[in-house]
Design a protein around this nucleic acid. Structure first.
Lengths: 125, 125
DNA sequence: CTGCATCCCATTCGATACTG
DNA sequence: CAGTATCGAATGGGATGCAG
């Protein structure tokens, strides 16, 4: 472990019940409208979706493009800066997968999978 | 971004208000007694410290060595498996530091530093 | 010394309704 | 369509006291 310890800074950006899923969809699909994100994540409320997107926007991870028209249209996408965190997300994802494996070996299968339903739905398994 | 998206798995291990600090101390000092950890983090309550250590223990990141004696003595250390996540922690830390810089450039200094007091105390700045 | 139990508060999050 | 406003429930975390 290094000096400084800004691990929490990284955590704060990614934590928030829905941020990883949102990023996953935006990384996968490129640009999405608010309603498309909602359709992709049926369980998230508008309030939460808005809040998390605003958070990501403040951190320059997500770009919000507003079209002044009726009916309104707003598109979200990953910023260039945001794309640079792909490696970190990849690293976290890889470690996460390996860790699930590790826990399975330690305790046996079918455990510690709670609270990942959303992701599992997403992947469709 | 990959398939699967187990980013949340990684997050769940590190999240918990004190886990990064605990890991930081254990990585730095090797083996520490419960009371030493408390001294190192004056603001954490016993309840929280216990809970987070149990969590890390369950995830095979931290080892708990109990000496059966009076008065009791319990030592905590990073497991071999836990040491293998050094690279991930390093990556998150690096990104976190760079991100603080990035935000400073975007919005100007002296912002977004809230909620890092603990870490800052730790580093003594 | 270590750490569990209890109570309590603050913040988060979901549900619902409403608006430009 | 893309939000905001309001309320209540759930959850996380702090303070304190007791126990092995």
């Amino acid at each position: 472990m290094p000096e400084g310890c800004k691990v929490e800074t990284a955590l704060e950006i990614l934590v928030g019940k829905w941020k990883p899923v949102i990023l996953f969809h935006l990384f996968s699909n490129g640009t999405m409208r608010f309603s498309e994100l909602q359709k992709a994540m049926p369980d998230i409320t508008k309030k939460m979706l808005t809040a998390q997107l605003r958070d990501l926007e403040y951190n320059d991870i997500v770009h919000r493009e507003i079209y002044l028209q009726i009916p309104p249209k707003v598109e979200y996408s990953i910023t260039e800066y945001g794309k640079r965190m792909t490696h970190l997300l990849q690293a976290m994802n890889d470690w996460g997968m390996a860790h699930v494996e590790h826990l399975n070996e330690l305790y046996g299968k079918d455990r510690s999978v709670e609270s990942l339903e959303v992701i599992d739905d997403l992947v469709g398994k």
